[in-house]
Amino acid sequence: MPKLNQDSLQKIDFTLNGVAETGTAEPRMLLSDFLRNVMGVTGCHVGCEHGVCGACTVQIDGKAQRSCLTLAVQVAGRKVDTVESLAGRENPLTDLQQAFKTHHGLQCGYCTPGILMSTSEFLDRNPNPTEEEVRDMLSGHLCRCTGYAGIVNAIMATIEERQGKAAAE
């Protein structure tokens, strides 16, 4: 059984946005700090560090989770996806990202990466949710700029468009 000494630097091999990566961290380092300050993935934003605001949400093994409530060493051997994984640096925006643009689902954009990571998993799991279910999923995120309407409208439009496409096929 590995007992990690508090002062030791742990080597963390994991898959970050589809690429095998390695970094090091003390046992107490938060995943959010590790992603930002060690791995340089600054699309993961830190808003409260107590699990309420949702800004730091990333997907671990495909599930949306708070990176501020996760230790970096816990992702060893796992797959971590941040907002940078969605369209990458140069591919076209995903339909969900584009819908946020079309429906003005973001202003300062600070909460947006977390919301995108939750929503993309949520829609994979539940492709045909009601607006109420979408709002319920969003309740794990705080946004101060938009009043949420643009976000909800963007997600609902994405759902509609996906269904239109599915029906056409």
């Binding site: 993935v41 699309g43 940078e84 954009g109 947006t112 995108l116």
Partner: peptide, 12 residues
């Protein structure tokens, strides 16, 4: 502004 913000590459 949105392109950079949505990709997570905007700089704060």
């Amino acid at each position: 502004e949105d392109e950079a913000l949505l990709r997570g590459v905007a700089r704060y």
